[in-house]
Design a protein around this nucleic acid. Sequence first.
DNA 1: CGGAATCCTATCGGATACTG
DNA 2: CAGTATCCGATAGGATTCCG
Lengths: 123, 123
Amino acid sequence: MAYQTVRSWDPELVPTPAGRGARPDEACPVEVALRVISGRWSTLLIRELLHGPLSYGAFRKRLPTLTDKVLTDRLAELRGHGIVERQITRGFPSRVTYQLTPRGEALRPLMIELYRTGEALLA
Amino acid sequence: MAYQTVRSWDPELVPTPAGRGARPDEACPVEVALRVISGRWSTLLIRELLHGPLSYGAFRKRLPTLTDKVLTDRLAELRGHGIVERQITRGFPSRVTYQLTPRGEALRPLMIELYRTGEALLA
DNA sequence: CGGAATCCTATCGGATACTG
DNA sequence: CAGTATCCGATAGGATTCCG
């Protein structure tokens, strides 16, 4: 009979089997969360939207060095993840605004924790 | 006189000027935190180490599809960030183990929050 | 056992120009 | 105002081979 060391999972760190894979896994909750906030500029867009809805042009004013292509890419990605939605108001001029969905608002505690952890690492 | 809308920062979300930049910034706490956990396999290595020290070979056994190159890269990166340290025990056989530093242990709340948020997004 | 050195490819994101 | 369409260089990370 051979011995083996069985590792028990910390139930606070890894409460469900979904986080116990032996390889990168789309369904792992940690990766799900990371995927929606990952990508250059993503956290900046989320930060802006956590303060309220913005138009395309308002993004460009607040983040002047962000190019159209990347802004469009990121907004599409965030919309694809159900984090952001686009509101079009018809009329002259027709107004387009982006805002967080309830799913998007759910990112706030994570953003706060990221900030906190980053500050701790800097100290 | 022109009007302008001045945005006030949510002091819980962005408590210090370090997080108010208009472009991606290495010194932004959010990016600092993201940088140390980013990269494929990184969160898996951190998860393993949050359960205790591991040898190089133990990593390979627990994460069989992770290649030497990437494992070496990630460990070097995590060591460079001061998250992980390497302990060498002389003798036969000479033993090498990797473990989290106190800075590394400080990532635990963030990992838990990532998991929580990911589960919320999946629901 | 515990790595380092090469090579190769896919994706990412910046620059630029154009459009309804 | 609110985007699209191309192009293109830099990295990231996987496969493979070799080393003390």
